[in-house]
């Protein structure tokens, strides 16, 4: 464990708490893509079911995995049951096939071992890289976002960005590289570049998050 990974994970944890806080205090999931949230459940379940068969890593690792599975399912419950009327599928129109299809194909081609569990792991890595797209697409369609929604996205993007110095650190300190995670992680972080530009130049200066017309 190094500080980049620790702060990355904490940022991920914070992003989920911010999202739950936003939904509960505003009693609304306006502006949040249900598709992106559903994809995260798929990501966490396919990656962290290794809790059932892989050898124990650490209490930290187990706790985080359980938290990510549990909290992502809870968010789906909030969106589909508790605050269902505030969720508007008509603007959440990104096609899931465009993300699921390529993730399955990539996982079948690029994996470390052609076994069920390793293909599943690779699938979860590729799907995570793409899962934010319905949310970003929705943001683009509406052209604006509540400040708290942008804080959620910023924390989520920071988590991805922090994993990059983590890999550099591990490369120099342990001599290890995980090409699948690194390539997918760099792509995933790249998807946030436009968002971060507006977040830093507008939201952090107290202005509203608005996309240029």
């Amino acid at each position: 464990m190094n500080i980049f990974r620790l702060f990355g994970d904490l940022s991920h944890l914070a992003s989920i708490l911010i999202l739950i806080h936003k939904i509960q205090t505003s009693r609304s999931c306006r502006g949040i893509s249900f598709k992106t949230q559903a994809l995260y459940v798929a990501v966490f379940v396919t990656r962290y079911l290794d809790l059932l068969y892989a050898e124990h890593v650490s209490i930290y690792n187990t706790f985080m995995k359980l938290f990510f599975i549990g909290s992502s399912c809870y968010i789906l419950y909030l969106m589909k049951v508790r605050f269902r009327p505030t969720q508007d599928p008509s603007i959440d129109t990104f096609r899931l096939e465009y993300l699921l299809g390529p993730s399955v194909v990539l996982a079948l081609i690029f994996n470390y071992t052609f076994s069920f569990t390793e293909v599943l792991w690779a699938f979860s890595i590729y799907l995570e890289a793409l899962a934010i797209l319905p949310q970003l697409f929705m943001l683009q369609r509406t052209g604006e976002a509540e400040a708290i929604t942008t804080h959620y996205l910023a924390a989520l993007g920071a988590y991805r960005a922090l994993y990059i110095p983590n890999w550099l650190y591990r490369y120099f300190s342990e001599g290890t590289v995980d090409p699948i995670a690194v390539v997918a992680g760099i792509v995933q972080t790249g998807l946030y570049v436009d968002f971060f530009y507006i977040y830093f130049t507008k939201v952090l200066r107290g202005q509203k998050f608005e996309l240029p017309a």
């Binding site: 990974r5 994970d9 892989a54 890593v57 650490s58 690792n61 071992t113 390793e118 290890t176 995980d178």
Partner: peptide
């Protein structure tokens, strides 16, 4: 081969 360090990342 599976990099053995990968399983500890989240």
């Amino acid at each position: 081969p599976v990099p053995d360090h990968k399983k500890d990342e989240l």
